[in-house]
Design a protein around this nucleic acid. Sequence first.
DNA 1: TACCGTCCAGACAGGTCTGTCTGGTGCGGA
DNA 2: TCCGCACCAGACAGACCTGTCTGGACGGTA
Lengths: 205, 205
Amino acid sequence: MSEDGSRTSGAPDATSTRPSARDRILDTAFRLFYANGPRGVGVDTVIAESGVAKATLYKHFPRKDDLVLAYLDRVDTAWVGQLRAAADAAGRDPRDQLVGLFDALAAAQRRDGYHGCAFINTAAESATAPDVHARTVRHKDAVRTWLADLARQAGAQDPELLARQLSLLVDGGLASGVLDADADVPAAARAAARTLVDAACRPGG
Amino acid sequence: MSEDGSRTSGAPDATSTRPSARDRILDTAFRLFYANGPRGVGVDTVIAESGVAKATLYKHFPRKDDLVLAYLDRVDTAWVGQLRAAADAAGRDPRDQLVGLFDALAAAQRRDGYHGCAFINTAAESATAPDVHARTVRHKDAVRTWLADLARQAGAQDPELLARQLSLLVDGGLASGVLDADADVPAAARAAARTLVDAACRPGG
DNA sequence: TACCGTCCAGACAGGTCTGTCTGGTGCGGA
DNA sequence: TCCGCACCAGACAGACCTGTCTGGACGGTA
């Protein structure tokens, strides 16, 4: 995973050094891929907007697919971090955390250029791409495992089921984001989460 | 809307007439577009597999986008029909219908070549396509309006909210279908729907 | 027979895409 | 001073894509 140690050696002069070519490529790819879908962005565009030579790009990412996977890895880190932060901000009660994580959905919708779930979008446009497929499954599994842990801490009757249900709500909310960032969606998802969490954690239910 | 009256004149011999060129194009496009995404299928492939001349295809669908929209219209009709059929099969109680429609999700997942929601997939891969965008929004609105009607008949406290929540579950289930037809997804969605419907229709809730 | 509409077959132009290759620049260390 | 490394700039090949165009076959009708 960690292959880049350019930062560990210490930059001598932070003001004069611009980001490395690799970082510029990734930053540009992240922005363009999310906005247009990886398939909708040519390598030439990434090159032009990141101010990098073609040979440099292909040195760091021998295939375009490698760049797409690196993009997905970056999305994974960012999105999981946002979900955890929103959950933490909701307090110490795991039940509140399971509901509060939907604030990340609301925050994402408010951001400019919001366009739904990068994983779903990428998987949708590359039907036959085992690597993309695998990354997406791994990402969704990681989120669901985390949700199941929280559900277990919350004392849910069937933590796996609750995790899957909340995961459906998250994915549904993100999927609708491809179209229009309907402001009512996050609130509805959050309310549904509250209902499901309460029902799953009720002693008799 | 209705521009083709080839069927109304009455076919003289049903056994010897193969489908019209237009139908063959649409059938082939439906199959290929759903499997690979419209962007992943070239016009030449549609022509080859439907046994049609290029000029014929472009006579019926002057732009490839026109064919994509016709494909989405066909998906809309089919999917809405399946949802309504599943709801009807669940009995006469609107609450049962709101839950039973998730059987359509289960049935879809069992079908060979299942690949999630054609609308979401198409919208995801064509970020800047107003027509595709509009058709998808129209489709989702139609489903949600129907759900809201059912929710109103079921006596839900806030029919619009319940409709939106169930819609999220459907979309979430379909979105996950792009990856793997996880057999647990429809059951979880159905169970969540039951919980949400019960909570929304409870006198004190 | 002559005509017309629908259709098949395929060449073609013009564009975009990925990935390779050549050539030149600037910098740090031996 | 020389070498090696990372990088910039851009030409190029080969494949694929959309959309247009030509030429001909077939069936029904006057």
